[in-house]
């Protein structure tokens, strides 16, 4: 298979970068969501950012980063408030309260999209559902050295810029607040009694989740963002009992899923002789869950197989 360098740099490289960064910026907060049994906050946030993005677009008339982020963040905060209110007033479990809010918000987003014709230009429902990874183009890259040249950087696609910024921010926040996130996840009351307000950190995590969801939304769509939130963290959880190691591992799994998934979607059909490509975002989710399934079975201490073998051994000893 013959692959001109310029094609790779303009089409595949930005897509690969977007895939990896989306995985990283969702995967890191995902660790804490999984540990807090709040995985479905990732689910909820990925849905509720849609009306935020749409309204941000309608008000500003552009798909620029700032209105999009602001719209999505306000939608996320309104939703968090609603969820909390429904839980308390109705004495309803968190899952159901989230279900009410995120389906309503998503439906609102869909309706506004259809009503206003915003769907014509850059936003449409399909894009919201399974992203637009393949259409991330970095024009103006003809050679590796263009990558760092001012003209090359100038043409960096909008979605990649946004994702790069959010990923850096998320990594920075996770490292800076690692200790605070750790204690408030393990023992929120203790954290509050030490002066690290568990509620404040919780809200911070929701905001971080919403930010990651918006940034990755563009690339992989709202449903597959959930795979990025949960699968890498859940996979890493099978391999270690050390939180910082778990974060590192989840980053590795997220990166591997992004690269393998994209390559499989773009090139596997070609290798089989067909002349089309499959949906890359979907493939990344599939690869991420394959990693998770393999780990759930074969991981040494916490995999199913290892535990069954251990039990057998214990029985034999008796």
């Amino acid at each position: 298979m013959d692959l001109p360098l310029a094609d790779f740099l303009q089409i595949d490289l930005p897509a690969l970068l977007v895939a990896v960064l989306a995985g990283l910026c969702c995967g890191l907060p995902g660790n804490f969501l999984v540990l807090r049994r709040q995985s479905l906050i990732g689910d909820a946030m990925s849905h509720v950012v849609l009306p935020g993005i749409v309204v941000g677009y309608l008000l500003s008339g552009t798909l620029d980063t700032l209105p999009m982020l602001l719209g999505a963040l306000s939608a996320a905060l309104i939703s968090a408030l609603l969820i909390e209110g429904i839980k308390r007033l109705g004495k309803i479990e968190a899952g159901a309260a989230m279900g009410v809010v995120f389906t309503s918000m998503f439906a609102l987003g869909v309706l506004i999209l259809e009503q206003t014709g915003a769907s014509g230009v850059h936003l449409d429902v399909e894009h919201a559902l399974y992203g637009n990874l393949e259409s991330t183009l970095w024009l103006g890259l003809n050679d590796w050295k263009d990558l760092l040249s001012p003209t090359g950087l100038e043409q960096m696609p909008n979605s990649l810029q946004r994702l790069l910024g959010v990923s850096l921010l998320v990594i920075l926040l996770t490292v800076a607040f690692f200790k605070e996130l750790k204690i408030s996840t393990f023992d929120p009351e203790m954290a509050s009694s030490l002066g690290f307000s568990a509620r404040l950190i919780s809200i911070g995590l929701v905001v971080m989740t919403a930010l990651s969801a918006v940034a990755a939304f563009d690339a992989v769509g709202s449903i597959l963002v959930i795979a990025m939130f949960i699968c890498p963290a859940a996979t890493a959880r099978m391999w270690t009992d050390n939180l910082s190691r778990q974060l590192w591992l989840s980053a590795v799994f997220a990166t591997l899923s992004g690269i393998t998934g994209y390559l499989a979607a773009a090139f596997a059909p070609l290798l089989l002789g067909a002349d089309f490509a499959l949906n890359a975002a979907g493939m990344i989710a599939v690869v991420a869950s394959v990693f998770q399934c393999v780990s759930m079975i074969f991981a040494p201490d916490h995999g199913k197989l290892g535990r069954v073998l251990k039990q057998r051994q214990a029985l034999k000893m008796e």
Partner: peptide
């Protein structure tokens, strides 16, 4: 596994949906 139900739901919904999207494409 040690994963709680909410993680299980998230994993299943996103991975099945991902597979569906691939088949759709």
């Amino acid at each position: 596994t040690r994963l709680p139900e909410d993680s299980a739901i998230g994993t299943v919904l996103s991975s099945f949906f991902g597979l569906g999207v691939v088949l759709m494409s």
